[in-house]
Every structure is written in structure tokens, then in C-alpha cells.
Amino acid sequence: MNKSIFSICFLFLFSLTAVVSGQKSTDKYSTVKDTLSLIAKINGATTSIQSTESDFTQEKYLSIMTDKVISKGKLYYKAPNLVRWEYTQPYAYIIVFNNGKIFIKDDKKVKKFDASSNKNFSELNDNLTMIIQGKLFSQRKDFNYKYQESDKYYLVTLFPQAKKLKDLFGSILVYFNKNDYSVYAIKLMEAQKDYTLIRFSNRKNNVQLSNEKFSIN
């Protein structure tokens, strides 16, 4: 479950190369003609990234709720496999992936897990490594892809093929900025109408990040 979600998130997050900001999408989408060229350009954008720092806004839509629920935070990545999701709203929550270990800080409580003791987390780590290596579209067995474009974005829609994933998601939509092939947003559509939308902003690549950032005491 976690494997593919994290894979997709990190896959495209690490391909970001420029600062993007929230924009309203009213574009109409048409099918991309040269998909191989698009894939190559997206893959190319990931190769030089050694670290990333980005704000993110997570929007959760639930059909039972009249309003969307917004979470905000910051994401840090350092090659080869250090990741930190730091939620600041609606409450403080941090999850860190560090060389086979997982740290969670919830308010003042800190928990530490061994990733190998949990199959999902182990698979997640494997996927992170794969993504960091730039193998962006290597999960062809797990997904069918649909490529579209508008004036502003490329939209790659992934349709899960494995039953486990199908149970979780109807599709996963990834929006790339057309100017630099960076990701603007990821939308995880559930089987029903519910979805999670993650937008990235204020992103900086190849910044200095100390290893202490990926450890919680």
C-alpha cells in the first residue's frame, strides 16, 4: 500500500527543479503525441538532484465532509535515502526515513521502527532507492499510463493494475509544469470520489542538508 504511494510522491517530487506556486487549473487537456520524449525529459530532470527542500500543502477531500481538510508541512530529501516529512498543520507530526530506520515524532512522543520489520516500509525503501536512481517509469507492470497536456501542465495519469492498489486508488494524477518538467501536484484518487491532493511549492534543489535533519531524538 505505502509502496506505490510513496513511490509516486517521491518519484515526482525529486524531479522538481524549479519553484512553483499554487495556480488555478482551468485548462483543457489533450493527448500527448510524443510520450517517449516526455518520459525522457522527466527522467533527465531527476538525475542531478542530490537534495531537495520543499513546502507542501495536502488537501483531503472526503465526500462526507462539506469542506476540504488542509495539512501543511515541509519535505526534505537527501541522497541516497534520507527523507523527512514534517507536518506543521493541523498538528506537528514528523516521519523520517533513514537508512532502514523509521522515526515518527508525534507532538513530543518519538517512536523508532526498523523498516525491515515491516514489509510495507521495506518495500517503500526499495522504491525510494529506485526512484532516486531516476527510474521514473519503471513500474510498468503495476500501472497503465495516460499522457495528456494543457497549456500549463503535462498530466500523467497512472491506473493501478495490481489488485491491492486497485482497492486503494482508482487512479493517480501527476501534474508537471511544462516549462521545466517539475511537478506541480499529485492527486490520489480513491475508488470513490474521495481524493488527496499534494501541491509542492518553494522548492530548492541541491541545498545543504545536515544528516541531523534526518534523525529524531
Binding site: Q23, K24, S25, Y175
Partner: peptide
């Protein structure tokens, strides 16, 4: 229960 939930109408994709 959480007191300070952040709920608003954001633009949609």
C-alpha cells in the same frame, strides 16, 4: 479531538 482544524475551500485541479 482537534480544536484547530484547517478547513477551507482551496482551488481544485
Amino acid at each position: 479531538p482537534m480544536e484547530n482544524t484547517i478547513i477551507n475551500e482551496n482551488d481544485s485541479l
